[in-house]
Design a protein around this nucleic acid. Sequence first.
DNA 1: CGGCCTTTGAAGCTG
DNA 2: CAGCTTCAAAGGCCG
Length: 375
Amino acid sequence: MPQMNSAGEDDLGASDEMISFKDEGDQEEKIRESAFTERDLADLKSSLVNESEVSSHPRVPESHPEAMRRTQDAQLVYQDKLTDHMEDGVKHQDEGMYKGSGYPSYPFLMLSDPYLSNGSVSALSSKVPVVQPSHGVHPLIPYNNESFSHGSHSTHLPADLNQKQGVHRPAQTADIPTFYPLPSGGVGQISPSVGWQSQPVYPIPSCGFRQPYSATLSSGPSYSRFPHPLMLSPSMHTTGIPHPAIIPHSGNKDIDCYERNMKPHSEPKREREPKKPTIKKPLNAFMLYMKEMRAKVIAECTLKESAAINQILGRRWHALSREEQSKYYELARKERQLHMQLYPGWSARDNYGKRKRRTREKHQDSSSDNSLHCS
DNA sequence: CGGCCTTTGAAGCTG
DNA sequence: CAGCTTCAAAGGCCG
């Protein structure tokens, strides 16, 4: 509760939730959800094409009427949602956030003081499968909430974030900082950014930190392993983990290895110029959801193409219950808040025009069967 | 090798 | 202020 509105920065979240969906459809959706994996997938695979045509009501034929009403409901629900959020957000999180698969992953939420204080990271180490990428399980290692919560409570959540959020956090080590490094002055403690590590929310460049990262996790007391925060490059997290939101401006995401990222700092002149890293937009609720679920979908279905997967995820997203979605909205809101604190002056406008996308006049639709067949 | 595709949501831009 | 555009992730595909 504190969070939301109270803090005042809440505005961020305001929009998030607008989408609340159908109230009634929830049940249906839920059921569906459960069945999703099995039937759905199959369904998806085969039906993707068809559905694509019907984009308006994604795979929910029966309920599509609701889809239409969704907008209406959304408004109604919105308020509801706000309340929900307040309650939900916190409450859910407290409860362990997503049952099972849910959002165990969200780093920010999970990492909490426990780490700091206990250094219980070790817990991670033992449990965290360092990388088990594929296969359905939680690909995102860190996502494994258990690891985090494992010994302790993962609960503390960022709820506090809001409270102080706007107010610079004095000693809030526990709070935000834990998740996001302070931009500049505050780098004090390395909070285990386990968050980052764990967090798939923002990916770590492939070559990047993965390795080290995991190593870290597995080694437990590894804080020491991280270089001093101050020595890190701007794009890195205090812990040494590159901040997900920052990528080397060249944009070579594939390549940007960890080392590459750091150059600014250690080798200032080498790069000749600042090459200011690009700070990316914080992820929205759906993006967070995609991040978390993508691997799962990939595992379930043999699909690999992101476009196809995204379609599936889009449908699943709609199939989520309000509560489930709200979790993501909440997370997204927090992300934005953190992002804001981290990069106060940043604006999405900064990245405008960097990508030259041609106006998509391509109406996706029917004619082209997306050929999304899963197998 | 870089843009497209595809999704939703947030935010910027435009009229 | 409403509506449109761009960007965020991601990875195969294509020119």
